[in-house]
Design a protein around this nucleic acid. Structure first.
Ligand SMILES: [Mn+2]
Ligand SMILES: [Mn+2]
Ligand SMILES: [Zn+2]
Ligand SMILES: [Zn+2]
Lengths: 151, 151
DNA sequence: AATCAAGTGCAACTTGGTTGCATTTGATTA
DNA sequence: TAATCAAATGCAACCAAGTTGCACTTGATT
């Protein structure tokens, strides 16, 4: 447990590496270094990240092939450790699924700076009416506009 | 005004070319052949089309450069003649904006056949609460699952 | 320590979309 | 009707996100 202090803001930084390791092991698949490291990063983050952003952050300390990262992210999505969000710039953004942060909420995307924010306030009604024969898997609600910094 | 009959279903096919021409002229910008032709096609269609799908349909009769089509679609979006929908396959889909078909409704995307259907039934509440400083421009609600043909 | 499928790195590829620039065209004007 | 000229188009080259194939490496199991 590390404590960061930025100005007057105190941030408690939990031991995300151990948490990530545990979560990866729980899937039953191999607990590889890159899987743990990537999940660890996503656990730390407060907003969804693109493949590029993740790659840049991870490559600061140790090299990681971009194809491997694509496969790691794909695997984590399949294992429900993370979820991905389709942006207006045709780029996926990834965010960890925790108990607190399920993917049943809306996302805000700033059309000026392209940053994505999760709108946890927004609750969606779980069973909308669909045409006959249609099967619902997921609902994605995206709000577009300018964020506080871009207004 | 042409009438088509498929089995017992009678379809009235309006003069979309003249309608398209009129709509393009109303913008004040140049009423070019490709703009009119593309809008004409989208007026006829019952569901959103990708750039590819539009290109294929238009190239049946006369050649049209793909870059020009990209620019025509971009222009029509800017002029609010059409709107585009972000799909899970990282491909834009375009659909005409008519008075009846505003873009304030939800879209269903089949994750098996990738077809997109407009859910005109779905109404969205117009003013959701956002964090302070955030400015809303648009809401996009996408429902994912299997369509009637893929279930 | 030996085993071997699962995971990784690398190169080559695919695809949707963009950019720069020379040529053509549609509305305006003479 | 012909001249004009910015707007629109066609073409080639480019870009970036994501995928595929295959040889090499590694983590769990024995
Ligand atoms: Mn989210
Ligand atoms: Mn629509
Ligand atoms: Zn912003
Ligand atoms: Zn389908």
């Amino acid at each position: 447990m590390i404590i960061w202090q930025i100005g007057k803001i105190v941030v408690l930084k939990n031991n995300f590496f151990e948490k990530a390791k545990e979560l990866v092991k729980q899937t039953g698949d191999r607990a590889t270094y890159h899987r743990i490291r990537t999940l660890c990063l996503l656990l730390e983050e407060h907003h969804p990240l693109t493949h590029r952003e993740i790659e840049e952050r991870l490559n600061v300390k140790e090299q990681l092939d971009r194809v491997t990262l694509y496969r790691v992210l794909e695997w984590m999505t399949k294992k429900n450790l993370i979820h991905k969000i389709a942006g207006d710039d045709r780029v996926w953004r990834f965010r960890v699924n925790t108990d607190l942060h399920s993917h049943h909420h809306a996302h805000f995307i700033c059309t000026r700076c392209t940053k994505v924010t999760c709108l946890d306030e927004f609750k969606l009604k779980p069973n909308p009416s669909l045409p006959i024969g249609y099967l619902l898997h997921d609902i994605e609600l995206t709000v577009k506009g300018f964020c506080a910094e871009c207004t």
